[in-house]
């Protein structure tokens, strides 16, 4: 038996909305520690890792580890039916191939029950090493989204260069070139407005912009985004979900053969 209650159904709705274009089907692994999902996009270039800790839920019960394969577009259809301030309760048991989403209005006057069919998904889980990164940049998530969208109108790829003074994003295309340079900014009123650059050694990497633009759909989930880079390694783009976990996106670099 699995049962979990979230204060805001809107949170899970936003999470699924942010990843469903990248991965259409995925298996949620449920255990005593929480709900986890790891899936590659269909071209196997990027990877999404979602972790929702059990202590971030209002109620969490998983008697034994349990896998729930879901079509994320179908899941999104149901989550869209939740009211803005509804609570969400998820229930499933191994006896039937269904997960139930219960949406309850704040005054308890409306209770909606949606049952989603679970599916068997064969997926390869990858072990992600706990690596030290050469450079870590934290910046407002809206700023990162603006940069990748702006550069997406110029070129297909972005060259990211981190030095101790700044992080540079550069793109080139048929119409010309663009470079956006962000300096470290620590003296801000709100911590989430900071741009923080931690550099062990300078890095310079190139990535396909369309994936980064896709990752930035998670912007509304967190005010700040953390980008971790090491030479010839996938970039990590992390959105922290306050009090419950994170969504991490990994993207393999483009490397000259």
């Amino acid at each position: 038996m699995f049962e979990a209650q979230m204060a805001q159904a809107a949170l899970l709705k936003q999470i699924i909305e942010s990843i469903r274009e990248l991965i259409t089907e995925a298996t949620f692994e449920v255990s005593g520690t929480g709900m986890m999902l790891q899936a590659m996009d269909s071209s196997h270039v990027s990877l999404v890792a979602l972790n929702l800790r059990s202590d971030g839920f209002q109620l969490f019960r998983a008697d034994r580890p349990f896998s729930m394969g879901m079509n994320l577009n179908h899941m999104a259809k149901m989550l869209k039916c939740a009211g803005k301030d509804d609570t969400l309760t998820m229930r499933a048991d191994e006896a039937n191939d269904l997960v139930t989403f219960l949406f309850e209005s704040p005054g308890n006057e409306r209770l909606a029950e949606f049952e989603l069919k679970l599916m068997d998904i064969t997926s390869e889980n990858l072990g992600i090493p706990d690596a030290e990164y050469s450079a870590t940049v934290s910046m407002p998530s809206a700023e990162f989204q603006r940069i990748v969208k702006d550069l997406g109108s110029i070129g297909d790829t972005v060259e990211i260069t981190v030095t101790k003074d700044d992080v540079r994003f550069a793109a080139s295309g048929d119409i010309g070139n663009a470079t956006i340079k962000c300096r470290q900014l620590l003296d801000t009123e709100k911590p989430e407005d900071r741009t923080l650059i931690e550099m062990v050694e300078p890095v310079n990497l190139t990535f396909a912009l369309r994936y980064l633009i896709n990752f930035s759909k998670a912007t509304s989930l967190a005010p700040s985004v953390t980008i971790k880079l090491s030479t010839e390694m996938p970039v990590v783009v992390e959105y922290k979900l306050s009090d419950i976990g994170y969504v991490r996106f990994y993207l393999a670099p483009k490397i000259e053969d």
Binding site: V45, S46, L47, E124, L126, G127, A208, A252, P253, K254
Partner: peptide, 14 residues
């Protein structure tokens, strides 16, 4: 696409 590596080149299968 040229030069685009797959993510499985970097992370091992569990």
């Amino acid at each position: 696409p040229p030069g685009q590596k797959g993510i499985m080149n970097f992370f091992t299968k569990k």
